[in-house]
Every structure is written in C-alpha cells, then in structure tokens.
Design a protein around this nucleic acid. Structure first.
Lengths: 331, 331
DNA sequence: TATGATAACGTAATCGTTTTCGTTACGTTT
DNA sequence: AAACGTAACGAAAACGATTACGTTATCATA
C-alpha cells in the first residue's frame, strides 16, 4: 500500500507537505501541490480511511438501523426505497453507509456500542420499534441521530404526513358515496396513530359514523387476509375497506375473492404507500414520497453532524393521492 | 472516549497488558485478565475499530456491490432477500457490511479504489453487470471477492441452478400438454443463458418445437407488458408464456387481461423467483433459495478472507418448483 | 549453588494521517 | 540597515491499538 511517506520520499518533501497538498490546504504553492498530487495519482495512492479517522475522529460513515420485525425489512418496498434514496444522498456528500447490528466482532452487544465501536458520524433509525430500550439509548446518545417515520423530540426527524394522507383517502371514499368504512390498521405506532386521527377527522367531517377500526399489521399478507375474512363473515359489512398498506392489501383482496366478493363491485378497497404494483392492479392509494423522505433525512443528519448545535427540526413530507379503480361510486 | 491507556493507568498495568487481556491472549494469568476486563467494562470501554484496523490491516467489514440498473436494486425482492441473509450471516461472524459506491469523500472514483480506501476485508458482488470494466477490475483485484449469480473464474461464486429450474418448469408445462411456448427472457446475462439452455433442453426432451424466445428485461413490468401485448397481436400465439420473473409477470398478466385473455383459461403463465406474492396470486414459479444463496456466499467469502489460498469454488444452490394455478391442463 | 525454563509482565516501534508550531529565507517598509 | 511580515516548508507529537521482543522474578533441576 503506497502511503504518504513514500510519496514524500519520491517528491523530496515531508509527509506534512504531502498531506497538505492532498487536502488542498493553503500554506502551499499551487505548483507544489499539483506536482505532489500528480505523483500521488501516478503511484496509485489512496488515502487510508482508518488512519484518517483515528486522527480526525470523523469516519464519514453513517450507520443505518433497519429493523425487520418479521423479516420484512429490506423486502418492504417502502423502506427499501427510502434507504436507496438515503444511500444516494449520503454518497453525494461523501458518506458511506453501514448496517447497524448488535454485535461487535461476533460478540453480543448493543446498538449503541456497535455505533461507538465503528465510530459512525451519525445514525439513521429507519423502521424501528421505539419501545425497545436499546433504540431509545441510541436516540439519546451523543451520536447525531435522525429518525424516519417517528418523532423523537431530541433528534431531527422526517415523517410523512400520515394524518393528511388518510384524510385525503377518506374524503375521496366519502365523495364516492361510501358510508360504511372499515380501517384495518397496522401496529400501534406513531404512524398508525396519525392515520387513525386522520381517519376520524375525515369521517367526522363527512358525517360518516358507521365505521370500524380493526387491528392488523403492516406488510403482513396472511394476517390481513385472515382479518378480512373474519370481517366479511360478521354481520356488519363495510362497503369499503382501508388496508394497512398496499402490500398487505393483496391478502385482503384474496380473502375477498374467496368470500365471493368482487372488487370493486361488491366491496371497494384502498391501500397506502403507492408501491409500483399498486398502479398496475389499479389500487387506489396514497403514494408516499420516498425519494424526498430519504433525501431530506440524510441532509438533516449531515447538517446535524457538521453542526451539532442545529436545533432538531421535524420535517413533514407530503405524499400524493393516487386514484385507481378499486373504489366504486355507489351513489 | 475511554482508551486502553486509561484502563492501563487505572489498573496499574501497561497498555500491552490491557490489550492482551482484552484479546484473550495467553501470556497473562486468568486473574489479571478478569480484573482488567471487569474494569474495562465498568469504565465503559469499547475498542476503536479504526485504530485496530490501522495496525492489523483487518477492518472486519465487507463491501457489497449492489447495482441497480433501472433503480430496481434494493426494491427487488429476490436481491433484497439475498442481501438480508448475507447480512445476517456476516453479523454472526463479526463482520459489518457497507455499500460500495464509486465516490471517495464525495469525489468521483472507482469501485476498486473505494474498496481500498475503506480497506474492506472482502467484497460481494451481487447484482452486477460484468461487462462494466470497473467491476472486472474489482473482481480481478487483490481483494477477496465472491460473486452471486455470476461465475467469474477466479472468484468463489454462488449461483442458483437456473438451467435445472427452467428444465423443471418446462417439463411441468409440457406435462400439462402445452406445445406452443413463449419464453420472455431477461437481459443476456449468464443467468439468462443458463435458463435458455434449460428451456431448450427441456423442450427438446419433450419434443416441443414450436417455441419463441423474446427479449425483455428482468423486473421491468412495463416492458414485459409491452412485449406481451405485441406477442398477442401477432399471428403466432402461445398457449403458455414463461416470464422473466414473478414481478415482471404482473405486467404480462395485465397485458393479457387487456387483450381479453383470461389466465389460465386462454393462456397459461409461469414466473421465476418465488417471491411472496407469487403464492398469493397462484402463480406457478420456481422458487429460489435466497436464504442459502446469501448464507453460502457470505461463508465462502469469509473462508477466502481468512485463508486466501483456498481455491475458488463455484456453488450451485437448488431451488424448488412451486405449483400454482396459472398453468391449465390442456389435454 | 549455578543454570535454565517459564510465567508475567513492560518497552517501544509501528500502522498512516493530521496538525500545531516551529524554522528558514526572502522581500518590504521605515 | 534594522525590523518586520509572510510564504513555504519540516519536525514531531499525537490518535488508539498491536506485537515482537526484552526484562524480571520465581521455581525446579542438576
């Protein structure tokens, strides 16, 4: 591995000078700088990240905590799209991203200690369970943290406008004449609470009172199918069902078919997220702006890294209503 | 940050002794080792990855090259499942994983130099275009590399048994009495070549001669829809269509519906991959064993890292035929 | 008792950078 | 000519670990 020392030797200068040349410091004439840079290039030099990190306490790497309760994780299109966008933005700014685990050198450890061990400049918590004390510890640590889809007061955060999204969906459904609506919602996270709030607000505004809230899970096709089947067996039958997300709605749809219900003739359905497949199958949904979510989250994090004094801001990203053919006009 | 130096001071020993204690070296009595370890724990010590890497030339981190031609990348369930499994295995062995980019500190660079800069112990090339000279350079470098779904002679590799998978699919289709089969295949990669080979072999064996190969792309719903529509407008009409993968088959299916063809009454279809959704919509497919693919790839890479002399092995992982309801018996 | 083996440490160099503070040399100002 | 400013460099100390090797002390053996 060719080091600054060798370049210094070849160029007849000191290591300090090489470092300055390569880092574009002043204190060095342009001619010398160029001479050294050229030589370094020729000799196939590249800087050693560990050595630099050791001195500067900056690794230019960001840890990403990406929990997959039920092994959805990366496979979830919504999250993987955010991650993708986050990654690209980080790259632009010279940061690499690494997955956070709770092991150090194969030994069980905590998320926080793993981050310290790797000396991440900052951390993004993407899809996590904020009842987990390990995650709280991380969020409250000295390391700059950005949270996505969850607001933790002391950290900058980026969330999508779940209340508004749900309001728009319900308003649309109401406009189509539906009066009996079921909302199969996901786990009781902040996101879910916001959506339920939006649901209630919009129902109230449209004078819809005949509704049901049913607990299910995000991204769980099976459970969604079960709950839907159960629902359709009962004596209260909705004319429209709101599913936790587009993906799980597939399960609901299957259950409906099996129950002999045609969509949207017998029952209307909507999803949430706006994954690619939604438009394909004509699912009416609320498309989240994953590109902005990832991008803004990354920017906020880097801001925080580069100036730890910046006040944590909580950014809300707007999505976009996306009309399909899955809601029938029953006027 | 508490360093070995401080622990040494507090314990009244030298830094060397602390290092030995923490690394479980002999040359130190158990009592002292435990005393030091306990103190370190108390003081909240954790080792500094950069410093260790600087000395030992081992970072315990693995770079993952995950190219998303057409921004599929992470969103592709097949690849994200492999990555997930790879990541978990790496974690078990004490390695972290980081995405490879072609920038260093925000400056344009090459994949290879990025890896050298970060000093990855090894690299996994997951979904990449081996016509790209940058990728070839990486595969041929001094860094241990494992390739997935592509065989590059000098590196260990893990591929799924595409030839066999396709043979099984075609054999099944043939057994259902189909004689006119179209195979919409993906980009001309090694994987595709293997599948085409399997296709031809199985057709030959089943005395099927009336077939068509049609170029499409993997994971491209739109294109798949287009090609399918085109096909159904022509005068040669298959009784069964093999799509590039499960995901893109959705596009094909939509095109069929729009052309007034019912699946499987008018046309039978099969996919490839075995993503979750396949079973849901009753798609007959060949399920790849992504868990094994990721796991074995990671193991092979670590083997190579820990003993660079091990001969590169090329492992083939078997998948499993998965019957749905999308192929009609036309006897 | 002298010798050698062994256990239990410590010394110090080293990894590749960064950065602070010198030290020159030279030109400018009074 | 004295005094000063400044441009252009270098010396050296860090950063936090690892490790080969040297030094003791202790004890058993010849």
């Amino acid at each position: 591995m060719v080091s600054m020392k060798e370049i210094a030797r070849v160029c007849g200068v000191s290591v300090a000078t090489v470092s300055k040349a390569l880092n574009n410091k002043d204190d060095i004439p342009k001619a010398t700088r160029e001479r050294i840079r050229k030589k370094a290039e020729e000799m196939g030099y590249f800087l050693n990240a560990s050595a630099r990190a050791l001195k500067t306490k900056r690794t230019y790497s960001i840890g990403v905590l990406f929990i997959d309760s039920m092994s959805a994780g990366l496979a979830h299109e919504y999250f993987s799209a955010i991650l993708e966008s986050f990654k690209n933005t980080a790259e632009e700014y010279g940061y690499d991203i690494t997955f956070i685990s709770h092991t150090i050198a194969g030994q069980q450890s905590t998320f926080l200690n793993h981050c310290r061990y790797r000396d991440f400049d900052g951390v993004a918590i993407i899809s996590a369970d904020f009842t987990d004390p390990e995650i709280i510890a991380l969020a409250e640590s000295e390391i700059p943290v950005v949270t996505i889809d969850y607001i933790y007061d002391s950290c900058p955060s980026v969330v999508s406008d779940n209340t508004r999204g749900m309001r728009e969906l319900v308003a649309y459904i109401a406009a189509k004449g539906h009066k009996k609506i079921a909302f199969l919602h996901g786990e009781m996270t902040e996101v879910t609470r916001s959506r339920i709030m939006g649901f209630k607000e919009a129902c109230h505004q449209a004078h819809i009172e005949d509704t049901r809230l049913i607990s299910a899970k995000y991204h769980d096709i099976e459970l969604c199918a079960e709950k839907t089947a159960e629902l359709m067996k009962g004596d209260w039958k909705p004319t429209c069902i709101i599913f936790p997300d587009d993906y799980s709605s597939l399960g609901g749809r299957k259950a409906l078919e099996e129950a002999g219900c045609h969509v949207p003739r017998d029952v209307s359905v909507v999803g949430y997220d706006g994954i690619q497949m939604a438009s394909l199958i004509g699912l009416t949904t609320y498309a989240q702006d994953t590109r902005s979510l990832g991008r803004i989250a990354c920017r906020k994090l880097i801001d925080k890294i580069e100036d730890p004094e910046t006040m944590p801001e909580h950014v809300v990203v707007n999505g976009k209503f996306s009309e399909g053919t899955s809601v029938r006009d029953i006027h």
